[in-house]
Simulated scan of single mutants.
Amino acid sequence: MVDESRIKQWLTNANYRNSDIAFREIVSITTSYPGLYPQLDTYIFNDGTPMELVNLHGTIPVRYKNNVYNIPICIWIMDTHPNNAPICYVKPTPDMSIKASMYVDQNGKIYLPYLHDWVPTSSDIIGLIQVMIVTFGEQPPVFARPKDDLPYQRSPYMPQQPPAGGSSFMPFPTPYPPAGGFSGYPPYPPTNTGFPQYPNYPSYPSYTASNFDNPAVPPMSGGTGTIKEEHIRESLLTAIEEKLMRRMKEQFQQSQAELDTLRRTQDELKQGKAKLDAILARLEKEENDLNKNITILQDKEQELEKAIERLSNQEAIDVDDAVITTAPLYKQLLNAFAEEAALEDAIYYMGEALRRGVIDLDVFLRQVRTLSRKQFMLRALMQKCRQKAGLTV
């Protein structure tokens, strides 16, 4: 059971931008894959820059040739997660060697299309682990070292070194999950600091010729040392039960991972459906508004056509008759306005003549002063006429 408060403290101390998302993913991963443990450690980038990051270290179950193996990995979660993909490594134990391929280099760094095409909105670490399980099941990233190269005695659960020049590299098989496992296997020791250490398995018991073909049967203690038929039967039943339980556990975990993926896909589809419904509702509203505007435009067009038809049927209008005033006061106002506009144009052209050097400055000033005085009088006259006529001033 992981310490959730400590994980939150790690994410806060390491200044994770989206600490809530990272926390939820870490808890989900440690629940789905009990062989992985979180820790806060220092990661050194290629340029030598150190950074405090949270990583998930431990093992993941990989099926290879009908056997399940624990592949040791380490996933460094970036402080910008999920905007940037994590950095992943294979971390072989002393009795393992890295098998370099297009997915793993000599240093153990993992290269996957899922990491290269990381999408912040849809990619997550659980999906990455599932891709690792499938990829490493086809191309195991580690194999067991030769017996002479091991720093300690080989575990009875380690496969033999492949023949020279052969391509059948086998990873290091151990039961999964490592904690709370099945009978007959030593449990995986949990730890909170550093990469989890693999247990030193006891060596094989010495078998007699009568039980060599059945390694699941332990030697008898005491008595004559012979194996009776009921012992063989009980041992076989125990071995078959353990094998069936392991297969059922593996099948359950695989089905659970597929179910989780389908649930996430369902959630994404529901979110997409909600977005599409909102878009369709907005489009329907815009369509209704557009239809209303089209109806208004058609009505205005009909009114315009009627006005054009009415005007075309009328007699021609005399411009002079159109500006004839109905009262002497209005006529005086119209004449004053026309004269004032003419003076405005005259002053403008006087300025143009001065600019081009057609007239002298003295002539310009004298004429402008005269025109301005007359213009002022006309404007005062127009204001009085408006007041008398009751028009807006």
Rank of each mutant, 00 (worst) to 15 (best):
T30L: 08
I60Q: 00
Y33F: 15
S32W: 06
W10H: 08
N13C: 10
N55C: 12
K91A: 03
N83I: 15
L56E: 04
N46V: 12
E25T: 05
W76L: 07
N13Q: 14
A22W: 01
P38N: 09
R17L: 12
V68L: 11
T31P: 00
K8C: 04
Q9S: 15
E25Y: 10
T12S: 14
G58A: 09
N13K: 15
E25N: 05
L56Q: 07
D41S: 07
Y89E: 12
K65C: 10
N84I: 13
P86F: 03
I26N: 06
E52L: 14
I71V: 12
L53E: 07
T30G: 10
I60K: 03
I44G: 01
D79K: 05
A22G: 00
P34N: 03
S32L: 13
E52M: 12
N84T: 13
L53G: 02
N70M: 12
A14P: 01
Y37R: 15
G35K: 02
G48P: 02
I87P: 00
P61G: 00
N55I: 01
T12V: 11
K91G: 02
N67Y: 10
P34C: 05
Y43E: 02
C88F: 01
R63F: 06
G48S: 08
Q39P: 09
Y33D: 08
F45H: 14
D41I: 00
D47L: 05
A22T: 02
G58F: 05
L53M: 12
Y37V: 15
V90R: 00
Y16N: 06
N83V: 14
T30P: 02
N66C: 09
F45D: 11
S19W: 09
H57D: 13
P38T: 03
W76Q: 04
P72T: 13
P50F: 08
I77E: 04
Y43F: 13
T30C: 15
Y43Q: 05
L40K: 11
N15D: 12
D41P: 00
M78S: 12
P34V: 02
A85F: 00
I60G: 01
R63C: 10
Y16C: 02
I29K: 00
S19K: 13
S32Q: 11
I77V: 13
W10Y: 11
M78I: 08
K65M: 14
C74M: 08
Y69G: 06
V90E: 03
G35E: 01
F45W: 07
